[in-house]
Design a protein around this nucleic acid. Structure first.
Length: 312
DNA sequence: ATGGTTTTTACTGCGTC
DNA sequence: GACGCGGTAAAAACCAT
């Protein structure tokens, strides 16, 4: 599914494929390389936390229906379904003999018995389509998209999709994959870009996570730093400083239960202030998609918790 | 449903450019 | 006066029970 570590070797002189910037941020915390300009995650060593399609032992592997790694999960099938007509004519539009008619009748029955599968294929086709668009819009790396596809297939298998919108379930699968990879994307962001209702996205997200027993780590404020910094035009030196602040805050348990984006914005605010760069709270709040008030509150808390003071 | 926590909305006062 | 900042109260959103 994904290659292990063969390309984690030389990330020194890389260029962002999205915007061409060479200003890449190597986030050792998450093992990612992130473009400071546009926030694209270029490379990440993703943990495959996929629930069941991974096999740990030989017997397990052999008991799987899909043996070995599938080439890709993002293609619904190879277009190999066939429909058997009912008009009692053969390929040359001649009448079939009674014998042949019976044979085809049986075939048709067998095929309609597998109707579930046919419908599942249609469903998958639609879902993979949406998934492709969404992952494109959210510029997620291919591995995440694969993961999302796997999650969706699993959800479909478990009959979680019935009665729900394919679009939303696809978006939810993608968002889960994003969370599993620890990418800096918020739910509201995902819902905006995928054009689905945030509430419903959250519902489907929870449903899948619960039913499939996936555990999604809380998004780290660290992972949001490069993006917010880029959007607010904070000098990149501030990112490291802010990261330091956040790590310390984590250590002191000062960041529990707080929105990571607000934390990241506040840390950047402190960092830039200490360096004499003037970035306003509003700019950071906008970049982080939160409010001034939240930035202020986090700012205050961080200062108090870390006992650092800004001269001013 | 309910209560606790967090974020948002809206408004105010203060200092400075 | 507009702007950035700090603070607060109340509403809304969220989460677990």
């Amino acid at each position: 599914m994904q290659k292990p570590a063969d390309k984690a070797t030389a990330e020194s002189q890389r260029v962002c494929p999205e915007c061409g910037s060479t200003d890449l941020f190597i986030d050792r915390e998450n093992g990612e390389v992130v473009c400071r300009k546009c926030g694209l995650v270029i490379d990440e060593t993703m943990l495959d936390m996929g629930p069941e399609w991974r096999s740990y032992t030989r017997e397990e592997k052999e008991s799987r229906t899909r043996v070995g790694a599938p080439t890709t999960l993002t293609i619904h099938n190879k277009g190999l379904s066939t429909v058997i007509g009912q008009d009692g004519l053969d390929g040359q539009r001649r009448r079939l003999t009674g014998d042949a008619k019976n044979r085809y009748q049986r075939l048709r029955i067998r095929q309609t018995r597998s109707y579930v599968r046919g419908s599942a294929e249609r469903n998958l086709m639609q879902a993979m389509n949406d998934l492709a668009r969404f992952s494109d819009a959210l510029s997620t790396p291919p591995s995440v998209r694969e993961q999302a596809a796997a999650i969706y297939r699993k959800a479909l298998e478990r009959d979680l999709v019935r009665g729900r919108s394919v679009r939303i379930m696809a978006a939810a699968s993608l968002y889960i994959a994003i969370r599993m990879a620890g990418l800096p994307r918020s739910l509201s962001e995902a819902s905006r870009i995928c054009r689905v209702k945030g509430k419903e996205l959250a519902r489907c997200y929870r449903l899948i996570v619960r039913e499939l027993g996936i555990n999604t780590p809380r998004p780290s404020a660290l992972s949001f730093l490069p993006r917010i910094a880029g959007e607010a035009d904070v000098p990149s030196g501030a990112v490291e400083a802010a990261a330091k602040i956040l790590r310390e805050a984590d250590m002191k348990r000062a960041s529990l239960g707080k929105d990571p984006r607000g934390l990241a914005a506040a840390a950047l605010y402190i960092a830039s202030k200490m360096h004499g760069w003037n970035i306003t709270q509003k700019e950071l709040a906008d970049a982080a998609n939160t409010t001034e008030v939240t930035v202020r509150n986090r700012y205050r808390e961080l200062c108090r918790a870390l006992k650092i003071e800004i001269s001013n």
